[in-house]
Simulated scan of single mutants.
Amino acid sequence: MARVRDLWMRKVKHPDGSVTKEKTTRYGKGKRYLAVWLDPSGDEATQAFQRKIDAENHASVMEADRLRGAYVDPRAGKVGLQEYAETRWLPQLVHVAEGTKETYERHLRHRVYPAFGKREIGSITRADAKSFVARLNADPGLANTTVHTAFATLRIVMQAAVDDEIINANPCSRVKLPRLGDRVIDPLPVEAVRDLADAITPRYRVAVFLGAGAGLRRGEALGLTIPRIAFDRRHVDIRVQAQKGRLVELKTKYSRRIVPVDDVVLEEVRRHMELYAPAPGNVLISNTWKAVAKPSAFNSAWSRAAGKVGLPEGTRFHDLRHFYASALIAAGVNPKAIQRRMGHASITETFDTYGHLFPDHEELGRGAIDLLLRAPS
């Protein structure tokens, strides 16, 4: 049965049957009232409070949680958020792709830990979560999409703590985020793509053509193996990607695809193969040590090339993928075919990303109904 014990005063029963209160040796030291309840194993659990009403409320809540099977040991929430994430949550992420895990780690390191890393996970409130969003949103260097992703990382960690019975509820639930504006892709000019290919480190030149000419993601380009390049059938078969200098599975089943490529891409591949030895595993692109190229080294080469040709800071390899999609749209390729070549999970993703690039004006399709319905003269 839940109860409250006074740590400063104790009742003393005298021989004549009278009862008085006397000060204990703890009088005036520390918190006065001790909430006492039984945990699910039947053992006594306690927590001290300054006010009696707080102790009574806490003891009642813990007793009610035990009876309805929702009991969480308050001591569990005293673990620091960073300690929990590093020692329990991250090691358990065996079900997510390596790239997704890297994204979580990056947001934890740069945004979540500075705000909550040393805080006890049980002390983080919904007000704290709202303040976190407000601080991120006030940073002019962060896009709204980054705010969403950083907060999603915190929310997932806190939900894992709920699932692990460390805290009772997720303080990140029902927290409003800044509205995401309509996504507008502005493809790179063709001159910029050619300039990038000429400016980047020569052994990475072919990657520019794989991005702009086949829509490959960075990891897919760096992990493309020579046996997956069909020169006779003029296509590349995407089956793996490179991450941290090694080949790993693709993130989704939709990323596995065959992409037809034009001669200009195949010519660059042949030229590359004449100049550079493949990496282990017959990977087309190798670094100077003849190993699979690492993202950090490639990103440095990419940034230098983008700056050299005068492209805005923040121009990404992914922008080549947008260039490829816009070229297919301009050529009138069927949207469903574009979805497959891009490796999108659904046509909705394709239209959400590139819908504004498809032609849309009142003359489009003019005459089609005339041909079908007009009676013969």
Rank of each mutant, 00 (worst) to 15 (best):
M1F: 07
K11W: 08
K13M: 03
P15S: 09
T20C: 02
E22A: 10
R32W: 08
L34V: 11
A35F: 07
S41R: 11
S41M: 12
E44R: 14
A45M: 13
A45V: 12
Q47A: 02
A55F: 08
A55Y: 09
V61G: 01
R75M: 06
L81A: 02
Q82K: 15
A85H: 02
E86A: 09
E86M: 13
W89Q: 05
L90N: 07
T100P: 06
E102S: 12
H107C: 03
R111G: 00
P114I: 11
R119L: 09
E120Q: 15
G122L: 10
T125F: 11
F132A: 01
F132S: 01
R135G: 03
P140D: 13
G141R: 10
L142A: 02
T145C: 03
T146R: 00
T149P: 01
L154K: 00
A161W: 07
A169N: 11
N170Y: 06
P178N: 04
L188C: 03
V190Y: 08
L196I: 14
P202L: 09
V206N: 04
A207W: 08
F209T: 04
R218I: 12
G219N: 08
G223H: 02
I226K: 00
I226E: 09
I226D: 07
R228H: 11
R233G: 04
V236D: 04
Q241N: 05
Q243P: 00
E249Y: 01
K253H: 00
Y254R: 13
Y254K: 11
S255M: 07
S255P: 04
R257N: 06
R257F: 03
P260E: 13
D263G: 05
M273Y: 04
E274T: 14
Y276F: 15
N287I: 14
N287Y: 00
K294P: 05
F298I: 13
F298N: 11
S303Y: 14
P312Y: 00
F317S: 03
R321C: 05
R321G: 03
S326F: 08
S326C: 10
P335V: 14
P335W: 09
P335L: 09
A337Y: 08
I338R: 00
I338Y: 04
G343T: 08
A345W: 02
D370R: 15
L371Y: 07
L373N: 12
L373D: 13
